[in-house]
């Protein structure tokens, strides 16, 4: 392992609820992720992979243990500080695409830039560049309802990368797509990882998709069960 991983979890636990009904989702996870890695997180339902991804994405905080993200102790940060961290370093892609309805592709992609306070010209240029990267430059004025599932997911990826984040967090990005679209999305993610240097963290339960990753982390019962090299890496 290299000396300075971008992500470092040490003894991370997560407990939901209190008292007798409390549920321990994570039981002490140790995980290091290197800058530029492509990590697939796998595991059955309830294994703790979603909880881990929420913590890695700075959407949630661990109950115990430490999470070091680019040198920040995330477990000590408040809501807004974590929001600023997400704004600065992270991009998100979800299974359900999660685009704003009745909003053009470009406006969707521009959204993170708006929160960054970028001006109109820059938003347009960066937004169009991101759409170009996912091959949807000509579709910039289409709303999600006018786009196919695969296209919507590519808009979502454009939105995630428009801020040139360090880490892209993808939660089952191909879960709602047929196999042909899934392959296109995986190729796009691989391309972003290889050529733009974005660290990709992806949750999936499909081994075909996980095969695109360089590192595959298996979760079971709130712990990291095993870490293996990806087939296609």
């Amino acid at each position: 392992m290299s000396v300075n991983p971008i992500i470092s979890l040490r003894g991370v636990t997560k407990v939901y609820g209190e008292g007798p009904t409390a549920f321990q989702a994570l039981k002490g996870v140790d995980l290091d992720i290197q800058q530029g890695d492509f990590v697939a997180v796998m595991g059955p339902s309830g294994s703790g992979k979603s909880t881990t991804m929420n913590i890695l994405g700075c959407l949630d905080v661990p109950t115990g243990g430490t999470y070091l993200f680019k040198g920040h102790h995330v477990e000590t940060l408040d809501r807004d500080q974590r929001a600023l961290l997400r704004r600065r370093y992270l991009g998100f892609v979800f299974q359900g695409f999660n685009l704003l309805s009745r909003t053009t592709a470009l406006e969707n992609v521009e959204l993170p830039l708006l929160y960054r306070g970028e001006d109109k010209k820059l938003r347009y240029d960066m937004g169009m560049a991101a759409l170009d990267k996912v091959g949807l430059k000509d579709w910039w004025d289409h709303t999600p309802a006018e786009l196919s599932g695969g296209q919507q997911q590519r808009v979502a990826i454009a939105r995630a990368i428009v801020t040139q984040p360090d880490v892209l967090v993808a939660d089952e990005p191909t879960g709602n797509l047929d196999s042909q679209r899934s392959i296109e999305i995986m190729e796009l993610l691989t391309d972003l990882n290889r050529n733009s240097g974005i660290t990709v963290l992806m949750v999936t339960h499909e081994p075909d998709m996980a095969a695109y990753a360089r590192t595959i982390v298996h979760f079971r019962d709130g712990l990291v069960e095993s870490i293996e090299e990806g087939v296609k890496a």
Partner: peptide, 16 residues
């Protein structure tokens, strides 16, 4: 709610 979730996830702070 979901829209708000998206906004928060991509880095909107509560105040925004």
């Amino acid at each position: 709610t979901r829209e708000i979730g998206i906004r928060l996830a991509i880095g909107a702070v509560a105040r925004e």
